[in-house]
Amino acid sequence: MDTIPILKIGNALLVTIQVDMHDELATRLQDDLTNKIVAHRTRGVLIDISALEIVDSFIGRMLANIASVSRLLDADTVVVGMRPEVAITLVELGLGLPGVKTALNAERGLALIGGVSGHRDRDDADHD
């Protein structure tokens, strides 16, 4: 049974997709991410797709679904490592990936969500 590892880095979760996605694997990834976002009070999810040479409408929808679920759980989603040909394909497929931020690499992605700090700014405001 294939699984996609989810690593915790500061207040972020890092997912590196290096295998061909199928329905069951995408559903399992979404479930695993949802549980870890809640358990770790995650601020953001970084999805590294640099290993993917081809992105089809299924992968595009999966990324958009993960972003929607993450947003509902108060976590941002940033896709990193997108190749130019993948970006072109997504545009040609009409998949703008609403709610998904992008960055060239994981370092920039972490900066977008502030995932390297040891605290959550949103939580600090709740306790004042």
Rank of each mutant, 00 (worst) to 15 (best):
A103Y: 01
V86L: 03
R83N: 02
V86W: 00
A87C: 13
G115E: 04
G99M: 11
R83E: 04
E107F: 08
P84F: 02
A87E: 06
E92A: 13
V116F: 08
P98A: 04
A106Q: 14
G99C: 06
V80Q: 07
A87T: 01
V116P: 00
V91G: 02
R108Y: 11
N105C: 06
E107H: 07
N105R: 08
T102C: 09
G81Q: 07
L97T: 10
A87I: 01
G114Q: 07
A111G: 10
P98K: 12
V100T: 12
V91F: 01
L112E: 15
T89M: 02
R108M: 13
R83F: 09
L93K: 03
V116C: 10
L90Y: 01
P98V: 08
G109M: 02
I88L: 15
G96C: 09
V91R: 02
E85S: 14
A103D: 00
A111C: 00
G109L: 05
V80F: 07
R108H: 15
T102L: 06
T89L: 05
E92I: 02
G109F: 03
L93N: 04
G81E: 11
R83C: 03
V80D: 04
I113D: 01
V91Q: 09
A103G: 11
L97M: 07
G114N: 09
L112T: 04
I88E: 11
G99H: 11
V116T: 15
R108Q: 15
A87H: 02
P84Y: 01
A106T: 11
G81C: 04
G115M: 10
K101V: 00
A87V: 06
R83I: 00
V100Y: 00
V116N: 13
V80E: 06
P98I: 10
L110W: 03
I113A: 07
P84H: 06
V116D: 08
G94T: 11
V86S: 03
G99K: 10
L104F: 11
V91M: 10
V86A: 11
T102W: 12
I88T: 14
G94K: 11
L97K: 07
V86D: 03
T89C: 04
R83D: 01
T102A: 09
L104N: 05
I88V: 14
V86Q: 07
G94R: 10
P84A: 07
P98S: 04
E107Y: 05
P84K: 09
G99N: 12
R83V: 02
A103C: 04
G81R: 00
V100H: 01
L110A: 03
A87F: 10
P84Q: 09
M82G: 01
V86M: 01
V100S: 14
G114S: 07
P84V: 09
A87N: 07
G81Y: 11
M82F: 02
L90T: 12
L110C: 09
T89V: 01
E107A: 13
L93E: 12
G99E: 08
I113S: 03
K101D: 13
L95H: 11
I88W: 04
A106C: 07
V116L: 15
V91I: 06
R83Q: 10
L93A: 02
A111L: 12
E107M: 08
L93C: 05
I88F: 06
G99F: 03
L93M: 05
G115S: 13
V100L: 11
G81W: 12
L104S: 13
A103E: 08
V86T: 08
